[in-house]
């Protein structure tokens, strides 16, 4: 029982039977929630992300070696790899949190130099501000009419009635939902997910997958999901790349119909292929 709730349990093929049962429950949710056509909300769009010969080194140690990557607008890309493979560094470069040592990163055709307002980042820990109420956390940047947009965003993640509470009363999954709502408030063109589901238990994680997928389909932004959970990558992404020692070891399109059943033979084969490359 314990293993089911351990983070990354899904990364081990031996536990697939357990995953399947849990996945079926989630599948119903997905089907129920994805009646809206993709990009139903007008004015929302994704932005293409492009990396040209990107090198990142910390001192003498190279983390990314000449990375070329083209992510079309609206694509759901998963980046899989072992710890220390450069996944998080890649994400920090796209967010503009760190400059590249060489090469260029561009978002929506513009070169990244410093923080990019149309890129939002979901961290592994939700990073809610403990002394701001949930609604205030969602509207942390306090744009014009922030309360209304924050309320809408909270409603979208299913926490409409929790806005007046303090973050510490929330469970881990709920905190990540609030963090997702906070990212949605500013209508991002690119959403970066830095293993935000890694610390959640298996069932909550599957719920969060369904929620993320639904919102992505509605809004059509570009998603880069960092994960070391291959099952998660296959379940969510249009395309999976494997980063190994700072290089792309595999670039694999996932052409499975949505909503997905990861128990299918095709998913299993892709899963095997990715694991072999990691």
């Amino acid at each position: 029982m314990m293993e089911v709730f351990a983070p990354n349990a899904a990364a081990f093929p031996a536990q697939e039977t357990v995953q399947e049962t849990a996945q079926e429950t989630a599948q119903e949710t997905v089907q129920g929630e994805t009646r809206k056509p993709a990009s139903a909300i007008r004015g929302w769009h994704g932005a293409a992300v492009r990396l040209d010969g990107v090198v990142k080194a910390f001192g003498e140690r190279p983390v990314l070696r000449r990375l070329d990557l083209d992510i079309p607008a609206g694509q759901f890309l998963a980046v899989v790899g072992r710890s220390g493979g450069g996944k998080s560094t890649l994400m920090r470069l796209v967010a503009g949190l760190e400059p590249a040592t060489a090469g260029t990163v561009s978002v929506g055709g513009e070169k990244v130099s410093g923080l990019v307002p149309q890129v939002r980042l979901l961290f592994q820990d939700a990073r809610l501000v403990p002394w701001q109420r949930i609604l205030q956390n969602v509207g942390i940047a306090r744009g014009p009419g922030w309360q209304e947009t924050a309320r809408t965003a909270l409603h979208d993640v299913g926490l409409a009635d929790r806005g007046h509470e303090w973050p510490f009363v929330l469970s881990g999954g709920q905190k990540q939902r609030v963090a997702l709502a906070r990212a949605l408030v500013s209508h991002p063109a690119v959403l970066l997910l830095d293993e935000p589901f890694g610390a959640l238990d298996a069932l909550t994680r599957i719920e969060m997958h369904a929620l993320t997928e639904r919102i992505w389909r509605e809004r059509g932004f570009t998603v880069i999901l960092i994960t070391h959970d291959v099952t998660e990558a296959v379940a969510l992404a249009d395309r999976v790349i494997v980063l190994r020692e700072g290089e792309i070891a595999l670039d694999l399109p996932i052409d499975l119909p949505r909503p997905r059943r990861e128990s299918s033979a095709a998913a299993g084969a892709l899963h095997e292929q990715i694991l072999a490359a990691v």
Binding site: A95, L97, L115, P117, R120, L121, F123, D125, R127, V129, I140, A141, R142, R182, S186
Partner: peptide, 15 residues
């Protein structure tokens, strides 16, 4: 982490 988050989410120095 919170300060980094706040910067990513566009808070200027005073807020």
């Amino acid at each position: 982490g919170l300060i980094e988050m706040a910067r990513v989410y566009g808070l200027s120095p005073a807020p």
